[in-house]
Design a binder for these strands. Structure first.
Lengths: 381, 381
DNA sequence: GCCGCTGATGAATCTAACA
DNA sequence: CTGTTAGATTCATCAGCGG
């Protein structure tokens, strides 16, 4: 881990790099010190699994302006008006978002956080560049700064945009982990966290090191939701390295880009002190989608259910008989797979046979999915 | 009150209309039936105090969607929500927002509601047209529709933009009213309301009249915050007249623009039936501060418990290890949420994990509920 | 009348693997 | 490329009904 000035330029002459090759070119677990867009240009295409970005949005607040390359503009001498500054902020936003699109793997996703000052411009750029928005997420601040002058509503939230590379693109979403994290209820699009303070807030000489340090809890949820252990996360506006610290804790690789040497130094010190969780703690609830599939017929072959056994739905409205090949037949003459027959009998477009069909055990009805779980426990190492 | 087809064209030849003159040209407490932009063009400049707009969201839905129980989701498939492209949507948005800017008094404000499908495009148009954003407001839905396929976060909120006519423009904000409405705490930028249902939801022949009817409580807060009695509120996408009904109850004048005759008829009937709120009804609209819920995962995210920590029941019969997503894993191989694993290990149908699981502190066992209480004390005002 | 159970429903960009 | 099949997936609220 460390700070580097420049990424080794990508070798040329390759018709198509293998995935391993691309990864070898990445400055894993390092900070690239320098201009955000220039540093991004040096990274290989389709190489990172997620990008988390907390771009500057102090434009118009302190009268600060940025050129498309992110460099600072002296507003007094340049005499720009508000519309010039919006235009240039848009150009800057599109430039780094376009590089991000190139660097992302096809099944990667991007997260961008902002406030009403900039998030609308970011959102339009995201859509115009072909990304496909999956959710907008609201970070509700448990303890926001009040509006001291009583002129507006307390500005008590920030907005995050989560997007895939395109409408049809695949992406990682650890649905079960999110549901578990939220006491077995689907995770919603509004998240409550305290603002970053206390021990977590980096300070030097009694002053905060970075004006907009994000809470680690926020990054924890983002990374847990949309990456897998070992994935690579890029943060092009690294600041004091919240993304890196959480990534290290969660067993993910990180790459930071940051212009200010002072922030880089604080980030390095902080990430070195972060302790990775051990492997058993990193295990998370798996979606049935990622578990090995068990065909219903396998349960019949292994005598978990005998051909001729009678199944019923939970309310005993229908019955069906198990046949030797793992299909079901109904007294009405219909037959098919557990899913198809369930759908046919209900007149529904689809049906999950595993939860629809039940068998009788000890006087109670149990879904046949319980048999599948028993089978999995008995056969999986 | 009634429906009219056309606004009388504004008289010309006046160098400058007095405020009273302009108001005389307004179709107060009436619905203008027709195209939104054409109808707006017929309204005089600088004549209304507030505009509330609920434009089409341009949802771009794919195929049919079914719930896990097989029932069909009645989605928004109306023609009025379909646009050829984002470019067309942007042109439409800029056209009506530009007219709105002309119609607004210099000290008036505009509110626009949307979702992530359209709100970023609306926000950019608002900024580009010279409006000055004062807040973005999040409507947190108490009872949103779940994500039935488990592919994203539950889309549980919508966003409103509140803007004045320009950076230096004056505007009305009833700070005291908002603070009173919120138990003497500054009103925040995130508001919780249930979606519109029950008796309030307009129905005809058992079916909803409008697919996206907004809750009156939402409009109530908007109008109470930013208008004074007697002010004029324009709603260019009137639908079934929620804005009109609430304006009438609060003693504000309203103007609606709506293209569909069916919606106009329903709105007229509804607004005629609207009565000023009595005190008890008012009380129900002031949402009491709800008891905050804390998920176990939140304690993990915020490091009240570290992944890898070992929990036990009060009699130390079972142990479990905390994992990164807030699930627990038992040495026997079972895993799940704090509630589920507690139930599994005891062979019970259910279990309150908060009182069942304990952690060791200062040599004694304490229920993890103690950590939850600590967290609540630290984060609640 | 109250309690509990059942069914319906809401602005939704809602699958993945294989033949 | 298309078509088919397996199989994964829901929370809060309200109306209606029966005990």
């Amino acid at each position: 881990m460390g700070v580097i000035d420049k990424v080794a330029p990508a070798r040329t002459g390759r018709s198509k790099a293998a995935a391993g090759d691309v990864r070898a070119e990445l400055p894993l677990d390092q900070i690239v010190m320098g201009d955000c867009i220039a540093a991004m240009k040096a990274l290989p295409a389709k190489s990172v699994d997620m990008i988390f970005a907390d771009p500057p949005y102090n434009l118009q607040l302190g009268g600060e302006l940025f050129r498309p390359d992110g460099s600072h503009v002296d507003a007094v001498t340049d005499d720009w008006d508000k519309f010039d500054s919006l235009k240039h902020y848009d150009a800057f936003t599109r430039a780094w978002l376009a590089e991000a699109h190139r660097i992302l793997k096809d099944d990667g996703t991007i997260w961008v956080i902002g406030s009403y000052h900039n998030i609308f411009r970011v959102g339009v750029a995201v859509q115009d560049l072909g990304y496909w928005i999956l959710n907008d997420i609201v970070w509700r601040k448990a303890n926001p700064m009040p509006n001291f002058r009583g002129t507006r509503f307390t500005n008590a939230h920030e907005t995050l945009i989560w997007a895939s590379k395109g409408e049809k693109a695949k992406y990682t979403f650890n649905y079960r982990s999110m549901k578990t994290l939220n006491d077995e209820i689907q995770m919603r699009s509004d998240w409550e966290f305290p603002i970053c303070g206390g021990q977590e807030r980096l300070k030097k000489g009694g002053h905060k090191v970075h004006p907009t340090q994000k809470p680690e809890a926020l990054l924890y949820r983002v990374l847990l939701a949309c990456t897998k252990p070992g994935d690579v996360v890029l943060d092009p506006f690294f600041g004091t390295g919240t993304t890196g610290a959480v990534a290290k804790r969660l067993g993910r690789h990180w790459i930071g880009i940051e212009r200010e040497p002072g922030y880089c130094a604080a980030a390095i010190e902080r990430i070195e002190a972060a302790l990775p969780l051990d492997e058993s703690a990193l295990a998370t609830m798996q979606s049935p989608r990622s578990q090995p599939k068990v065909a219903f017929g396998v349960l019949v072959e292994n005598m978990y259910l005998v051909p001729g056994a009678v199944l019923t739905d939970a309310k005993r409205r229908w019955t069906a008989t198990v046949r030797a090949d793992g299909s079901l037949s109904s007294p009405c003459g219909a037959s098919g797979s557990i899913h198809k027959l369930g759908a046919t009998l209900q007149g529904a477009p689809a049906c999950n046979g595993w939860s629809f069909w039940h068998y009788e055990a000890e006087g109670a009805l149990k879904p046949i999915d319980a048999l599948r779980q028993t089978y999995l426990l008995a056969t999986q190492p």
